[in-house]
């Protein structure tokens, strides 16, 4: 269970998140809303890149807001970014090792874990490829491998399907659906692709202008008139990459 309580973030006078609350119990949950709704901001607070003005994020009894960002990763938080953040001058393997480096455990276990994560994400064949030589899909797959490595408890994907073809998006969706079986982690996905969200997310939170518009089972939420109203705008201002 991921429980977000009363989360509030301000940038100067702007309230980017306004007392957001939701209890995600599904294995894969969605976070949607128009551009600038506060989705990425939510993930940034959970990651610890931004300080919450107020509120808590409690997962398995731990209040993440109280931990330093790198401690959250040690605890079991993983995330990908809207604009992927694979280090160009490292190989895929090194990008994965960069996470296990900071976790406890024996070297052999870490290596086995890395192989397993790579296998799952389908990047075994490109483990020795340099980050700069990866194409968009390979980057996304590497992101998935990064997220499932090292016994994660909670994983967040920020627009993972951005820039992917429909076939690639489908494959990515399947991968995300398999994460909980592999690791037991709860997954939170932001995406503009409502079809993808509908297919993989059992529960969804909808934000607009930093406020909670709706929360509940995805199919119900998407039928909500308030949600449909909020989404009218998105057709005209499609998200950048």
């Amino acid at each position: 269970m991921i429980s977000i309580e009363n989360l509030t973030v301000r940038f100067g006078g702007v309230v980017a998140l306004d007392h957001i609350g939701a209890e995600f119990s599904a294995n894969v949950s969605g976070l949607i809303g128009p551009n600038g709704a506060g989705k990425t901001t939510t993930m940034n607070v959970i990651s610890g890149f931004l300080d919450a003005h107020n509120g808590h994020v409690i997962v398995e009894g731990t209040d993440l807001v109280k931990l330093a960002p790198h401690k959250r990763v040690q605890w079991g938080l993983r995330r990908s970014f809207q604009k992927e953040q694979i280090a160009n001058d490292l190989t895929v393997r090194e990008n994965l090792m960069a996470i296990t480096d900071h976790l406890r455990g024996a070297r052999a276990d870490k290596r086995a874990d890395l192989e397993r994560a790579a296998e799952f994400a389908g990047v075994t064949a490109i483990l020795d490829k340099m980050g700069r030589d990866l194409n968009t899909f390979e980057r996304r797959l590497t992101d998935v491998a990064r997220c499932v490595i090292g016994h994660p408890k909670m994983i967040m994907f920020d627009e993972p399907a951005g820039g992917l073809t429909p076939e690639e998006t489908e494959r990515l969706g399947d991968l995300i659906l398999g994460i909980n079986d592999l690791t037991g982690a709860k997954v939170l996905v932001i995406d503009h692709d409502v079809e993808l969200i509908e297919r993989i997310c059992a529960e969804t939170l909808v934000l607009d202008f930093g406020k909670r518009v709706a929360f509940g089972p995805t199919s119900e939420v998407l039928r909500d008139p308030a949600v449909q109203a909020a989404y009218l705008g998105i057709e005209v201002e499609e998200e950048h990459a």
Partner: peptide, 8 residues
């Protein structure tokens, strides 16, 4: 951000 997200 990339570093922090990797636990660095």
């Amino acid at each position: 951000a990339a570093a922090l997200a990797s636990g660095v």
